[in-house]
Design a binder for these strands. Structure first.
Length: 798
DNA sequence: GAGCACTGC
């Protein structure tokens, strides 16, 4: 199997490369536009390497809830040669064949129960374990409901999941996908909108639904919103639920725009605490009943609870009463999954050395457990993964000497920063008589499903990011996982057959784990979430219904932050600047930088967009390892390096990549820059440019002229950094006499991260993109600035 | 001298 690396570059010369490419996401390109016999792949992928094409761009489509056998149709789609031979009856034929499989899913017998409950109630909470088929079947069940005159939306936390589920459901329905005529199923994710006029079901990311609410807060196009994977509790899902509660209970201003058409909300989750979810919705109905006017501010609400209800629709009130009095059972459905049994084995004594324990366990499994059966090990991070990989590889020779009859071991690391081609290896069949050992971070818990796993080894730990509002610092530390997370990891052994899970902790330790992972909204910088609310008309962000209430401190810090960048007026309401920032798919700080760069005085928008695009995707720089580094790589990198620091170095990298018109992939390899990350940067750049044109921050002519960007002058370089200062005025530290850096606000000690070009350098002051505590407080994405720029900043604000 | 995982018209 060749490494799927050389996918499209030769072909890419001819077509505009940028808008297609975000490897790992586009499950397959162009497919949506022609889900029928004329395989779309012909115009994009190299016909001679169809498999490589699909693999290069695919993190394995994740059919969480479907048995492996069912995935075969996707293989056919991925393989245009094969697909070309499929007769044209394929759509209907495929759908019929799939029906038999669907009927065996645990969720299948629940169809009428689900429909009946939604006749009575607008809200339904459905818990279903992995393998039940909920994500694919429930949307289809609802299409025949009498209230279902509009679309059914299904939200997903991740883009790949939204796309692959849409494809699966369209197959099941005998429909083509997306924009093609008569297609019943579409999807909408960032960079890839594939929704057709006739679509009845639309899969979309949570973020995308929130975006749609900006334009249509009442979600008038939908009869139902299914919120899937709620147990993951992303910030976006919590915001989504808040808005949906307002819509179903009638407290949202937007309700009247639905013109009496009901909105049904189905909340689907694997493990969530269903009682409290339901309780929270009922509480919403209760509050709606006592609130005098839709979305009245607190002060008004408190003044007279029995004041006129006349402004609200009588029907809504009736529905609310019904909901409040409803028996919980009538709003709840639980479905068993179809997982194979997994035996759990704990340590009898706690261990000090997880890697050692994992190493022993791996060889123990390898000697005693039958083949086939791959091993999946969950560790905390990239370092641990590569350490264990090394130990295993060092130990293998000794083990073989002891027992030469053992099967071989193939060790495969898996973490997000790993180049795509290497991630892809886990999906490839291992050589005969070989057992795979996949050593993974949390990426294998939710984002990537590893096939062939029968044995799981769980370290019981993960790195968790947590924001500290008091000092504006993110910490990224190793913590014990939660019970639900441990169950999730264990379940990875039982997807294809019965399996075993070794936990590298005692059952007593397990009992000390928290039940569920703390919702992200409680451990993140809230400025983005609050701006999202405000831009959608929520005046009283403190009163916005959230399943988990962040601390006052965190809210206060975020509001202050928004005020500081000028997104709020003095009275605390969102202003025009805030609205502009909210429209950009960026953090508020980065959005503010964009606005600053568009000013006549600064005039460096195109450059700033390049840098901001990089900060909004993963790290573009690959690590140069000592062993394999070719001298020319070091030189190529050095040519990109800029003395001012990382911002301008990144700019040089993006410009170098964008200017390369013949072979960008080779350029990326030559500079040890991630091609995949760069494709994402190009997508983001294009999107941000388009939005800047729309917001009149950028004229189309400037955009067109900017294709060859000139060398950055000293003055422009300074302006670029001054723009970043606008959004990141808190992220400034100055050199103090002992040679360390301390923050201007708060006098915190800051070390320049070793990945920075300014590492080890002493400059009067630094500006940085991120402040993260790992084993020290590190500044990442660092540039040198002049302290007097801060005075300029203050005087220009005044 | 070091990087859990996602998302955004």
């Amino acid at each position: 199997m060749s490494v799927p690396d050389h996918d499209t570059e030769k072909h890419g010369q001819k077509r505009k490369r940028e808008h297609k490419a975000h490897a790992g996401e586009n499950v397959h390109i162009g497919d949506g536009r022609s889900g029928n016999k004329k395989s779309s792949t012909t115009n994009t992928a190299s016909a001679e390497t169809p498999k490589d094409e699909s693999k290069a761009r695919t993190k394995k489509p994740e059919f969480k809830n479907l048995p492996k056998r069912q995935r075969s149709t996707d293989v056919q789609r991925n393989n245009p040669k094969k697909a070309a031979f499929l007769p044209n009856r394929s759509l209907a034929g495929k759908s019929n064949a799939l029906l038999q499989v669907r009927q065996k899913l645990p969720i299948w017998p629940k169809a009428s129960d689900i429909r009946n409950k939604l006749l009575e109630s607008d809200v339904l909470v459905l818990t279903a374990e992995t393998g039940s088929g909920k994500s694919t079947q429930v949307p289809q069940f609802l299409l025949s409901a009498p209230w279902c005159t509009g679309r059914v939306a299904v939200t997903q936390p991740r883009r790949v999941a939204a796309i692959s589920l849409a494809r699966r459901v369209s197959d099941e329905m005998g429909s083509s996908l997306g924009k093609s005529p008569y297609s019943k199923v579409g999807y909408s994710v960032r960079f890839d909108d594939n929704v057709g006029r006739d679509n009845k079901i639309k899969f979309l990311t949570e973020g995308m639904l929130l975006q749609e609410m900006l334009r249509d807060p009442a979600l008038t196009e939908y009869s139902c919103v299914i919120v899937d994977e709620v147990h993951e509790r992303s910030v976006n899902v919590d915001l989504t639920l808040g808005f949906l509660r307002g819509l179903v209970t009638g407290t949202s201003d937007a309700c009247s725009k639905r013109k009496g058409k009901p909105l049904k909300v189905v909340i689907m989750s694997a493990t969530a605490d269903t009682e409290s979810l339901l309780h929270w919705f009922k509480q919403g109905y209760q509050e709606a009943k006592s609130a005098p006017i839709a979305s009245a501010p607190d002060s008004v609400q408190n003044s007279d609870k029995n004041a006129s209800n006349s402004s609200r629709d009588g029907e809504v009130l009736e529905a609310n009463d019904r909901a409040i009095n409803e028996d919980d059972e009538k709003m709840l459905i639980k479905v068993k999954g179809r997982q194979h049994t997994v035996q759990t084995i704990y340590l009898t004594q706690p261990t000090q050395d997880i890697l050692e324990a994992a190493l022993l366990r791996i060889f123990e499994i390898h000697r005693k457990e039958p083949m086939p059966g791959d091993i999946l090990v969950f560790l905390t991070g990239q370092d641990a993964v590569t350490d264990l990989q090394r130990s295993i590889e060092e130990t293998i020779p000794a083990i073989i000497t002891l027992d030469s009859g053992l099967p071989k071991l193939q060790v495969l690391p898996l973490f997000a920063a790993l180049p795509q081609a290497q991630q892809q290896l886990i999906f490839e069949a291992s050589p005969p008589n070989t057992r795979k050992v996949i050593i993974a971070t949390n990426i294998a818990e939710t984002s990537i499903t590893v096939p062939g796993v029968r044995f799981v080894i769980d370290s019981g730990k993960a790195k968790i990011k947590r924001y500290r509002p008091t000092i504006g610092l993110d910490s990224l530390l190793v913590k014990p996982i939660t019970k639900s997370s441990a169950e999730q990891r264990k379940g990875r052994a039982g997807r294809e057959a019965a399996g075993k899970c070794w936990r590298l902790y005692t059952s007593k330790d397990f009992e000390t784990f928290e039940k569920d992972t703390e919702p992200e909204i409680l451990r993140t910088d809230l400025s983005s979430a609050l701006l999202t609310m405000m831009a959608r008309g929520i005046d009283d962000v403190v009163g916005f219904p959230l399943l988990a209430k962040p601390s006052r401190e965190a809210m206060g810090r975020a509001l202050l932050q928004l005020y500081k960048i000028g997104a709020l007026s003095d009275d605390g309401h969102i202003n025009e600047m805030g609205h502009k920032i909210a429209r950009l798919p960026l953090t508020p700080a980065l959005g503010r930088v964009i606005i600053a760069a568009a000013s006549e005085e600064m005039d460096c928008l195109m450059h700033v967009i390049d840098i901001v695009s990089c900060f909004s995707v993963e790290n573009i720089f690959l690590e140069i390892k000592d062993e394999d580094s070719r001298p020319e790589v070091g030189e190529a990198r050095a040519r990109l390096s800029r003395r001012q620091g990382d911002h301008l170095t990144i700019l040089a990298a993006v410009q170098g990549y964008a200017a390369e018109n013949s072979d960008r992939k080779a350029w990326a390899r030559q500079h040890m820059i991630s091609h995949r990350a760069m494709q994402n940067v190009m997508d983001a750049r294009k999107q941000i440019c388009a939005q800047c044109v729309q917001a009149k921050l950028l004229s189309k002519t400037t955009l067109a002229e900017a294709e060859d960007r000139e060398i950055v002058s000293e003055n422009t370089a300074n302006n670029i950094l001054k723009c970043f200062l606008r959004g990141f005025s808190n992220n400034v530290a100055r050199l103090v006499p002992d040679g360390s850096y301390r923050t201007i606000h708060g006098n915190q000690l800051v070390a320049i991260h070793p990945s920075s070009g300014l590492f080890g350098k002493k400059v009067e002051a630094i500006l940085y993109n991120e402040f993260v505590f790992t084993n020290k407080s590190y500044a990442r994405g660092v540039s040198a600035i002049q302290l007097n720029w801060l005075d300029e900043l203050i005087s220009s604000e005044a």
